[in-house]
Design a protein around this nucleic acid. Structure first.
Lengths: 199, 199
DNA sequence: GCATGATATGTCACTTAGTGACAGAAAATG
DNA sequence: CATTTTCTGTCACTAAGTGACATATCATGC
């Protein structure tokens, strides 16, 4: 059972990247995805929202990975052993490239920036549960929500920075490099002591 | 010299609050503001963006206040003595109420949420310079940008929480209460040691 | 297998968000 | 005051997004 919305979102992301946001119409997206225009607007509340699933899916997959983070391990231990297999996943890499391309053009497409911020906002909600579990605190605790928000903000900065460097400046970033920067960001952003073994 | 865009934004915010986002048209906003519809779309790239100035102005005024924060004072000292006068400003209070009302209906108006996130994103950029100055670091330093992002995220949470409590749950929040929660949020969110006297 | 209700999609007419082009008003500059 | 630039209104237009209804798809019970 494939996610039809995500599939359409992939086509939209590709078109936005190839032709630009303004130059891509709802009809274009529908034609590329092989569905009617009406269905595009049933799936998404606006044109910019068409890219949200692609932007979200990487964040959510990463959140799902963090959901398996054992309390007995530090962030370095856990990501150090699990990140390689995670980044080797075919679908993950393809969606990541699509997302990176969108992030790289945010500076000239304010509508896409709002879609990105919405995706981060949803990712933040996912992280709250993980932080709550790891900090052994309730999910509605302010400190927990703040920690999730700070970590999300840190990852947002890293994502934007790496994307722009790779796409706009032609930089080369290895998987190890990206992983270590993500780890550093999580550590720097965490306002609760969840990065080292807990309990 | 009054800001025409901000004036229109105030009318839009009032209409969104009174009638809801969907039920308010661009024509309605133009009529309320006493300008042509064409000018509305010259001012704002989308209907949801109409509220951005109102959402931003409180954040930016607060950022301007923080810009006067002497390095010799802690956050408690500085805001303790300057917040009362700040909150007594007529225009500030009026815009704050408008902003609070928008924040209180974010949960059912996704379009307005994206406008709010965009406003926070711009406020974050303002904060970067202040944090850089206080931390005696360059503004493009990752730690500086992260600290600004975390503080912004913390203030976003507090703003949303207080707004929803006041409007949706009928809670009563005094200026002192709000100030102390903002201070606590800044302290909790700051990932660099900028809250105590520096230098 | 088939009837049946629920959900998903397409078609088409329609409303409203948003733009382009040009003309006149307002405001800055000399 | 003359001029240039910037701002705004009018109007025709494109494209985003919705409502209503018909058809298709799919699950469930028999």
């Amino acid at each position: 059972m494939t996610d039809a919305r995500l599939d359409v979102s992939r086509h939209a992301a590709r078109l936005f990247w190839e032709k630009g946001f303004e130059a891509t119409s709802g009809d274009d997206i529908a034609a590329a995805a092989g569905i009617s225009t009406r269905t595009v607007w049933r799936y998404f509340r606006s044109k910019e929202a068409c890219v949200e699933p692609v932007l979200k899916v990487s964040e959510l997959r990463f959140a799902a990975l963090l959901g398996q983070w054992p309390k007995s391990e530090s962030i370095e231990q856990f990501l150090g052993r699990s990140m390689a297999a995670f980044a080797a996943d075919e679908a993950f890499v393809r969606d990541s490239i699509a997302a990176v391309r969108i992030l790289a053009i945010l500076y000239r497409e304010p509508a896409l920036r709002s879609a990105w911020l919405m995706a981060c906002d949803e990712a933040e909600r996912e992280l709250v549960a993980i932080v709550a579990h790891r900090a052994s605190r309730p999910a509605d605790d302010f400190e927990v929500r703040l920690c999730a928000a700070s970590i999300t903000a840190a990852m947002r900065l890293v994502d934007e920075e790496i994307s722009s460097a790779v796409i706009n400046d032609g930089a080369r970033v290895t998987a190890q490099d990206a992983t270590s920067r993500i780890i550093a960001a999580i550590r720097a952003g965490a306002t609760l002591p969840i990065c080292d073994p807990v309990d």
